[in-house]
Simulated scan of single mutants.
Amino acid sequence: MDGDRPGAVRARGITKTFGDVVALDGIALDVAPGRIHGLVGPNGAGKTTLLGLLLGLAVADSGSLEILGAPVGRALAAPEGVAGFVDGPGLYPSLTARQNLAALATLHGRDAKGPAIDDALARTGLTDVADDRTRGFSLGMRQRLGLAAALLTEPRLLVLDEPANGLDPAGKRHVHQVLTELAADGTSVVLSSHRMDDVEALCSEVTILATGRVVYSGPLSELATDRQELDYRLVTSDPAAARRVAADVPELRLVGDPATLVVRARVPALDDLVTRLVKAGVALRELAPVVSPLEAAFLALTDRSPVGAEAQEGRS
């Protein structure tokens, strides 16, 4: 953790059951101040349950949970400084975006007519629809308004469930910018997402859940190592010549559709291929992993489809 500052989240041995269903099974989680921590896993892995515990919407059956340095032992007891939403933000559909925020500000004893509301609307890109009733808002607009509502409380821990859900590129850009700025100012963010590109763009750390258990928790960078074998798609000036060159590279395999040049290799073998292509006079126009390092780790650690070009069909 950062110096003498308490961790934003410290969980040990957290379990939670619903009848015969074990939603969380011995969960450990650490989130440092000023970090954006990603929470990923298949449907039913326990992500929403864990987020609910962080927001004080439920209490664990066993284990210890500290949030912002304070122990949490009962429902609806999250300490001051925690904000966010699970399963989408709760809004009053008959009120406008501005009125929704004003109502929330009043509930929290804050100024319902001050500049904070305009600032929250502007930061989330909702100024132009501030006086529209939320009944007609799209999913993405509701998500952004939920984030604006959380900003009103000036949180030290922000907990978000699929914050980029339904966002267009402009909306996603607004949300990414807000979260990055919050982290830079010392706010901790825990977010769940099915979009690996969002997690990779935002998060420095990630926890991967499967069947209620942590299968990986740590820096995102450790999931992408030279030892990890991935599939890479290449676009070159001469596909036939590139395929012949690739066939001679040790510890590298051609995979996938013969019409597309896809190779399976670790980073050293991939570097060897690039060097050989240059020497052969073949221009390399594009080189990208078929599956990102995070998604590859997700698939492997959660025992999903095999990683590679043939794994593309049926991914979610």
Rank of each mutant, 00 (worst) to 15 (best):
P169I: 09
R173I: 13
V199S: 02
R227Y: 12
R173C: 14
A184S: 14
T225E: 11
E200Y: 01
Y216M: 05
L182V: 11
P169A: 08
L182F: 08
E200I: 01
P219H: 09
A170R: 15
S221M: 13
M196F: 02
R227N: 15
S188F: 04
D197M: 07
H176I: 07
V214F: 01
T211E: 07
L167R: 05
Q177R: 14
A224K: 06
R227V: 13
G212A: 07
T225M: 12
D185P: 08
R213G: 00
E205K: 08
H194R: 04
D198C: 03
A184H: 13
H174N: 13
A183C: 09
G212D: 00
V175T: 11
V199I: 12
E200W: 01
L179T: 06
S221E: 14
V206I: 08
S217G: 15
Q228L: 15
D197T: 11
V214T: 02
C203Y: 01
S193Y: 00
S204T: 12
A224Y: 06
D226T: 13
V214P: 02
V178C: 06
V175K: 04
T225R: 14
K172A: 10
K172E: 10
D197V: 09
V214M: 00
A210Q: 07
P219I: 07
P219A: 15
E200L: 02
L220N: 06
Y216G: 04
D168H: 11
P169H: 09
T211Q: 09
A183P: 04
L179I: 13
S188Y: 05
S188C: 09
A224V: 09
T187A: 11
M196L: 10
C203S: 04
L191V: 04
G218Q: 14
S188E: 04
